[in-house]
C-alpha cells in the first residue's frame, strides 16, 4: 500500500528556496487530510545541518542524502537518488516546488516512475479520496482541474501560490546513504546574482513596458528596492533589448503572483495580462487613459510614470 506524503526540498548553497516551505506546508495539509506522515527529502552536500529546520514546516521525518556529489543539481543524479528513495518509501503523494529545478526534476521523475504529474498547481484538494489539482493552462488564461489516479502522483506547486504555515513537527533526521548511479552530465560552473530577488518568488513586482522609452529602468529599480521586490518587463521592453529575457512577465515569459504588482508604461496585451492577473493587487501607471491595463488594475493613475513612480518611492520611504 502506498502511504505518506513525500516532499522533495530544494536548497541552493545551504539556503532553502521559499517554494520549498510552500510545498512542505501544502504537503503537511495533504498529509493531515489523508491521515499520514509528511517526510521531507534533502539532497546536497553538508545538508544535515540545515535539514533540521524542516520540522518547523511540518515534516515528521527528514531523509538527508548528504553527499559531495549531490552538491550541485544534475537531472540524472538527483533522479536516480530520489527514485530510490521513492521506491523504499512508497509514498502516495510526492510534492515539490515548480522552480526551474523542480520542473526539470519532476518531469524526469514522472517519466521514470510512469506516474501523473500536475505541473505548476495552484490549488490541491481531495475529493472522494481522489486528488484534484488546479493548474493554469494557456499561460493562465484558463484554469484546469485535473484528477489524478496513479500511485504515487507528483504535484509541482507554483511559487507564490500557496501559503507557508509553521507547524512544529518532530523532524527526525535520518541519514541516507545515496547510490548516485549512472551520470552523463557534468557540472562546470554557476553564475548567480544573489542581490536580485527572483521574480516568481517576489512579494512585490514593478514592471516596465514600452512607456519606459529606453533601457534606463532606474526609477523602477529604486521603487522595487524600497519594497524588497523585483523588477519585471513586458515583452516589448525585452524585445527592444532594454531588459534581459529572464525579466519578461507574460505568457511566453514568467508568470508572477505577488501581493502587489505595479505596471508602468505597459498597455496590457493579453499575453502580459496572462502572466500577472493572479497578483493580489494590481496598480497601473500609464499616460494613455484608454490603455487596456486599466481594465484589470485595482488602482490606476493616468500620468507620466517618470513623475509618478519617484513620488511613490518617496512616499514609501517616508512610511518606512
Amino acid at each position: 500500500m502506498s502511504k505518506g506524503v513525500l516532499a522533495i526540498t530544494e536548497q541552493l548553497d545551504g539556503v532553502f528556496r521559499k517554494v520549498t516551505y510552500e510545498a512542505l506546508s501544502e504537503g503537511r495539509r495533504i498529509a493531515d487530510q489523508l491521515g499520514c506522515d509528511l517526510t521531507a527529502v534533502v539532497l546536497g552536500s553538508n545538508v544535515e545541518i540545515i535539514a533540521a529546520e524542516l520540522g518547523k514546516y511540518g515534516a515528521d521525518r527528514i531523509i538527508a542524502a548528504d553527499n559531495p556529489i549531490l552538491d550541485e543539481y544534475l537531472t540524472d543524479t538527483y533522479t536516480n537518488v530520489i527514485s530510490d528513495i521513492i521506491a523504499s518509501e512508497n509514498p502516495a503523494v510526492i510534492i515539490l516546488g515548480a522552480s526551474m529545478q523542480g520542473k526539470d526534476l519532476s518531469a524526469r521523475l514522472a517519466a521514470r516512475l510512469n506516474v501523473s504529474l500536475a505541473m505548476d498547481c495552484v490549488v490541491i484538494r481531495i475529493e472522494d479520496e481522489k486528488l484534484i489539482a488546479t493548474r493554469p493552462i494557456y499561460g493562465g488564461k484558463i484554469l484546469a482541474d485535473i484528477a489524478m489516479d496513479t500511485k504515487p502522483v507528483i504535484l509541482a506547486v507554483r511559487p507564490n501560490s500557496m501559503g507557508i504555515t509553521e507547524t512544529d513537527c518532530a523532524g527526525d533526521i535520518e541519514k541516507y546513504d545515496a547510490n548516485i548511479g549512472q551520470t552523463n552530465l557534468k557540472f562546470i560552473e554557476k553564475t548567480l546574482d544573489t542581490t536580485k530577488i527572483e521574480l516568481t518568488e517576489a512579494d512585490m513586482v514593478v514592471s516596465g513596458g514600452r512607456g519606459m522609452g529606453g533601457a534606463d529602468f532606474s526609477v523602477l529599480e529604486e521603487l522595487a528596492e524600497m519594497f524588497g521586490g523585483a523588477v519585471g518587463a513586458s515583452r516589448s521592453a525585452v524585445d527592444e533589448g532594454w531588459r534581459p529575457h529572464a525579466d519578461q512577465v507574460g505568457q511566453t515569459g514568467k508568470v508572477v503572483s505577488p501581493n502587489l504588482y505595479i505596471a508602468c508604461g505597459i498597455s496590457g496585451a493579453i499575453q502580459h495580462l496572462a502572466g500577472m492577473s493572479s497578483s493580489k493587487i494590481i496598480v497601473a501607471v500609464n499616460k494613455d487613459p484608454e490603455a487596456p491595463i486599466f481594465l484589470k488594475a485595482d488602482y490606476g493613475i493616468v500620468g507620466d510614470l517618470f513623475e509618478i513612480v519617484p513620488l511613490i518611492t518617496e512616499e514609501i520611504r517616508k512610511i518606512k
Binding site: L185, K186, T200
Partner: peptide, 9 residues
Amino acid sequence: IEGGTVVIE
C-alpha cells in the same frame, strides 16, 4: 536557474 545560469556538459 532562478537568478542566474549554470553551465553543464
